[in-house]
Amino acid sequence: MIWILAAVLAVVVFVISMYNQIVHLEVKLEESKSGIDVALAKRYAVLTNMQESVKGYVKHESEVLEQVVQLRKGMSIHEMNQANGELNELHNRLIALVESYPDLKASDLFLDFQAAIVDCEEHLQAARRFYNSNAALFNEKILTFPGSLFAQAMKKSKQDYFASETSEREQIEVSF
């Protein structure tokens, strides 16, 4: 009898532990997703500020900067990927436009923007790597046995990764 009780207790402890591990990983994943949110918002703010400053400088060409990137709270990773792609595109357009204005390119304002953008990109890169690391841990847990059984019962599915900026950059074609 005592052995049966011990076995039941072991199973209960195991179930609770597995459940908690999956929930813990999911919470960490959500946390790291919010890190991408913050980094994207920061990059968005810097780029839109730069866009406004450049608009004032190149009034007759400002129509090429009319594209508006939308960010909203609670975006999925797929939407974040899309928004980041749009921000990349805006960044590339701004750089290409500034190239034809040497005065603007050499100005302190533009150099400050460049430094701010590099910093934002480094933070975004860090947030992306942190999220992907947590997504890898979560996916590993729910795709391998016995985690897969619990994941099915808890209706958890494989999480998308946040695409790397460099691979997206290569896909973007800048044309005016």
Binding site: K28, E31, A39, R129, F130, N132, N134
Partner: peptide, 29 residues
């Protein structure tokens, strides 16, 4: 919190602990 870097060889040799995951990935490029 214990973190796993994307470099498997690095993970085998080192343990990384950080109070903020994003900061850790920001510094440990």
């Amino acid at each position: 919190e214990k973190l796993k870097m994307e470099d498997e060889q690095f993970n085998q040799k080192f343990s990384v602990y950080a109070s903020d995951g994003v900061d850790a990935f920001y510094l440990l490029t």
